[in-house]
Design a protein around this nucleic acid. Structure first.
Lengths: 135, 135
DNA sequence: ATAAAAAATGATAATAATTATAATACTGTG
DNA sequence: CACAGTATTATAATTATTATCATTTTTTAT
């Protein structure tokens, strides 16, 4: 837990119990949970927790680069502890969003002139291994 | 308008007035409009139009590959007439989503074993040229 | 250690996006 | 033209998110 406290202090964010829990949860559960999922899980331990706090905290974390908001086609907020460049795979059947360790070269050749690029996201969609077996 | 009728017939979708208008709107307005934007615009011409029809139609079109749903970080549905592989740039300031004609090589080297990939999306985020000038 | 100030949290309400439902209107075919 | 099937609409219900503000917690200065 020290680790998370440090991370927050570095960003001058006061390490409240709620914030630490949310950060820890995202670290342990690397499945790009939604606000609802995070809220439901942490509420088990902190029954007084408000969903508002989860929203606020995630927005604050994202603004400080501690977590990443990842857009998916279900149009709900998904959050990712892993902020380093990596790739996602969204299964159309079970709706899960995986990290995948795709090794790719992105050779930009042209087309970004004048734009200030802050990040890029590469998202694959399809059917995952489990769902192919089942269905 | 013939063009759109043909497109729908090919997919065995009956070419109702609403559907044709929505398809035409997306063709002319290549700015990845939201449901709300499409609805508001077409309602000027068809005041009786229901938002439900816009939702249904877009879902139907997307399922038939006539348009593409593109995920962005505002977590609203954006739709794109251009279904061929291309790249998007989302401006964090003005929130617009542009097509950009990035010329890139995506060399997948590994990491997709067992997954059935149906499509991929490459999205850049940052500040666009206009906003850099202004701000 | 403590009081004042600042910030975070939580309950509640409000707004926005989407989905569900069921009655009505439209379209195409015999 | 009537029938069957489909599309559209109005309405209500759900779900996701944001806003507000009183209460609690944390920080800071003494």
């Amino acid at each position: 837990m020290e680790k998370y406290t440090e991370m927050l202090k570095e960003k001058k964010i006061s390490p409240s119990v709620q914030r630490l829990k949310i950060l820890e949860y995202l670290d342990i559960n690397r499945v790009h949970p939604t606000v609802e999922e995070i809220f439901a899980a942490i509420r088990e331990e902190i029954p007084i927790l408000s969903k508002m706090t989860v929203y606020n905290t995630l927005k604050l974390f994202a603004a400080n680069g501690l977590v990443k908001s990842i857009p998916t086609s279900d149009n709900k907020g998904h959050y990712d502890y892993n902020t380093s460049p990596h790739t996602h795979f969204k299964c159309r059947q079970c709706k899960r969003v995986f990290d995948i360790d795709v090794d790719y070269d992105l050779h930009l050749k042209s087309g970004l002139e004048g734009l200030k690029v802050l990040e890029h996201n590469l998202i694959f969609e399809g059917i995952c291994q489990d769902c192919r077996r089942d269905g």
